[in-house]
Design a protein around this nucleic acid. Sequence first.
DNA 1: CTAATATTGTAGATTATTTACAATTGCAAA
DNA 2: TTTGCAATTGTAAATAATCTACAATATTAG
Lengths: 107, 107
Amino acid sequence: MAKTEAKTELTFDYDFLEKLVVGIGEVSQITGIPTRQIRYWEDKGIITSLTEEEGKNRRYDYKSIKKILLIKELLDDGYTLEASTEKVTKRMEIIEKMLSKFKQGSR
Amino acid sequence: MAKTEAKTELTFDYDFLEKLVVGIGEVSQITGIPTRQIRYWEDKGIITSLTEEEGKNRRYDYKSIKKILLIKELLDDGYTLEASTEKVTKRMEIIEKMLSKFKQGSR
DNA sequence: CTAATATTGTAGATTATTTACAATTGCAAA
DNA sequence: TTTGCAATTGTAAATAATCTACAATATTAG
């Protein structure tokens, strides 16, 4: 059955999502948000990068990319950056729960 | 029910996988394969990057990363690079079918 | 050992990103 | 309208990451 097959493949891919880290240029391409704006949001503490040391290139994980995409949606809907951030922070909890479920499922 | 919820979220994420493009440094981090080796495999035609023009940085999509991970597994099992590539090419068809199913499901 | 396969090293040039400064835009309240 | 704040954008100079193209080394089968 098709859906079962697909689910198996994707559950397996939790490993992939966990290891996924991308640079700011890729985040920009994926989300459509300019790099300048991504840095600005990070300066404001809205998102967090995995930068090792000052001066080195920023790295973002799946959750950060997801968060940026969600904030973008709300901004387009007319919310302020602050309001968008607050709403998204709540939605992120659901995503984190989902991820931790996969974590359990994959070991 | 938990599994239904998760499946919904992931099916939605087909959009994410479709847009995903990462640089060679990230592919290296994700897969554990040195950048030098990734370029070598690409020179041999085993994998393909989305490079726009000569000299610009390489970009890889989800399928390419997946392929690299699969080849790595087989190499670790003792297969030659050529044998690994052949086996993986077959497995990739399954992944592509899976992706096209999600493509249908998401519109 | 030899030959083919597979990986690795590196210099010099180029691309992408960083920080830190400031300028600009948009919008709501006075 | 102007004042003030939120949000975004611009850019120069320095650094990090990647590129190509050359070659060297390592590994394995016959």
